[in-house]
C-alpha cells in the first residue's frame, strides 16, 4: 500500500491503464479534429453583416387631392392641420397601427429662434396628427452634427415631441446598420437602423443657406440618416444629395419655412441671419418642394444643380407650378 510519504509511484491497474489511454487518445483525436475544422487560408474569420435596403415608404398618388400645399400664417399648429386637411388628411398617409418615423433637421445645438433646426411646434403638430391617425408609434430621429443630447434638448424638439406623445430616438454608435443606397457615388453606408424598423417616414426639413450646396431643404435633409464619415460627401455634394433622395422615398414631406436661415448656414447663430417667412409647404415631391422654397434664399433652380440632377433621374419636377398645388393663408 502506498502511504502519504512513500515516493514510489503506485502500480497501475489494467482498467485504469485502459481508461487513461482512451482519454489521451480522445484528446489527441480532438486536437486533430480542431486543427482540421479551424484550418483557414484567411488570418481572420469574417462575419458578413446583413446589408439592408430602404423600403418604399410612399403611398399611391391621388387625383382627388393636390400634391403640394403652401400655407402662410402665424399659428404653426393650425397651418400644419390645414396643410394636412388639404392633402386629404393624415389618414391618407398613415394607416392605423403604422409605425411612423419623423425626420426633422436637428443637426445643431441651437435654439428655435436661430433657425438652424426645424421649428419644434411644427414637429410637435405632426406628431399629434400622426397619433390622431392612430399610428402605433411615432418616433423622431436625426443624426446630429453637434452633441445629439444638446441638439435635441436646446432645439426644443425633445420637449415638443414628448408633450405630443412621440418618442425621441437618439442614434447611438450601436444604432447604425449597413445599407445599400444603390446610388452613383453612395453605395453601402451605415444608416440609422430606425428607418428599417418603421412603415412610414415623414421628412420635416427647414429651409437654410448652405455654402457648398447653396441650400439645405428636403433633399439635403437625408444627410441625417447617415453615420460613418459622411463629411466625405462634400466632395461630390450634388450627386450625393441626389443619390440620397433617390434611395429614400418618404411618405410625406413638410418643409418648415417659418423662420429661414439666409446667411451663415447651416449653423447660423445670429438672429440677424434669420428671416421670418411664416410659411410651411407640404407635399409628395421633394424636388418641387425644394424648388418652391428657393425663393426664400433668393436662388434659382439653375443655381442648385442637384435639383436638375434629381429631375433627370425622375425623382420629381423642378417646375412646381406644373403641379396641382394650393396656396392659402390661415
Amino acid at each position: 500500500m502506498s502511504s502519504k510519504h512513500s515516493k514510489k509511484e503506485p502500480d497501475i491497474t489494467r482498467r485504469k491503464f485502459l481508461s487513461r489511454s482512451a482519454a489521451t487518445c480522445a484528446l489527441a483525436a480532438g486536437t486533430g479534429l480542431w486543427g482540421y475544422l479551424s484550418y483557414s487560408e484567411d488570418p481572420v474569420r469574417r462575419k458578413s453583416d446583413k446589408i439592408y435596403t430602404f423600403k418604399n415608404f410612399q403611398v399611391p398618388e391621388s387625383k382627388d387631392h393636390p400634391s403640394m400645399v403652401i400655407i402662410h400664417g402665424r399659428d404653426v399648429k393650425k397651418m400644419a392641420d390645414t396643410a394636412m386637411k388639404k392633402l386629404g388628411g393624415m389618414s391618407r398617409f398613415i394607416s392605423p397601427g403604422d409605425r411612423v418615423l419623423i425626420k426633422p433637421n436637428i443637426g445643431w445645438d441651437r435654439q428655435p429662434e436661430q433657425a438652424a433646426n426645424t421649428n419644434p411646434d411644427l414637429v410637435g403638430a405632426i406628431v399629434d396628427l400622426c397619433r390622431m391617425a392612430k399610428a402605433s408609434e411615432v418616433g423622431v430621429t436625426d443624426v446630429s452634427i453637434n452633441d445629439p443630447y444638446r441638439s435635441f434638448a436646446r432645439s426644443g424638439i425633445e420637449e415638443a415631441v414628448e408633450k405630443s406623445g412621440g418618442k425621441i430616438r437618439f442614434t447611438t454608435q450601436n444604432d447604425f446598420v449597413l445599407t445599400d443606397l444603390r446610388g452613383k457615388v453612395l453605395q453601402v453606408w451605415p444608416v440609422s437602423r430606425f428607418y428599417h424598423e418603421v412603415d412610414k417616414v415623414i421628412n420635416v426639413p427647414i429651409v437654410k443657406h448652405h455654402s457648398l450646396s447653396k441650400c439645405t431643404i428636403a433633399m439635403k435633409n437625408w444627410y441625417g440618416v447617415l453615420g460613418g464619415q459622411r463629411n466625405r460627401l462634400h466632395q461630390d455634394i450634388n450627386t450625393s444629395i441626389t443619390d440620397l433622395a433617390a434611395a429614400i422615398k418618404p411618405t410625406l414631406t413638410v418643409v418648415d419655412a417659418t423662420r429661414v436661415l439666409v446667411r451663415n448656414g447651416p449653423t447660423g447663430g445670429n438672429l440677424s441671419d434669420v428671416s421670418i417667412e411664416n410659411t410651411i409647404v407640404a407635399g409628395l415631391d421633394e424636388i418641387a418642394l425644394d424648388s418652391y422654397s428657393l425663393r426664400f434664399l433668393d436662388l434659382m433652380v439653375e443655381d442648385v444643380p442637384f435639383l436638375t440632377m434629381g429631375a433627370k433621374r425622375g425623382l420629381g419636377v423642378t417646375d412646381w407650378k406644373s403641379l396641382d398645388y394650393i396656396e392659402l393663408k390661415v
Binding site: H210, L212, Q235, G269
Partner: peptide, 21 residues
C-alpha cells in the same frame, strides 16, 4: 483637399459655429 487635391470640401466652413463664420 481643395488647396492641394483640387477636390470640393469646405466641411470646416459648414460646421464653424460662429456667425459670421
Amino acid at each position: 483637399l481643395p488647396w492641394s487635391m483640387h477636390t470640393e470640401c469646405i466641411v470646416c466652413e459648414e460646421v464653424c459655429p460662429v456667425s459670421p463664420k
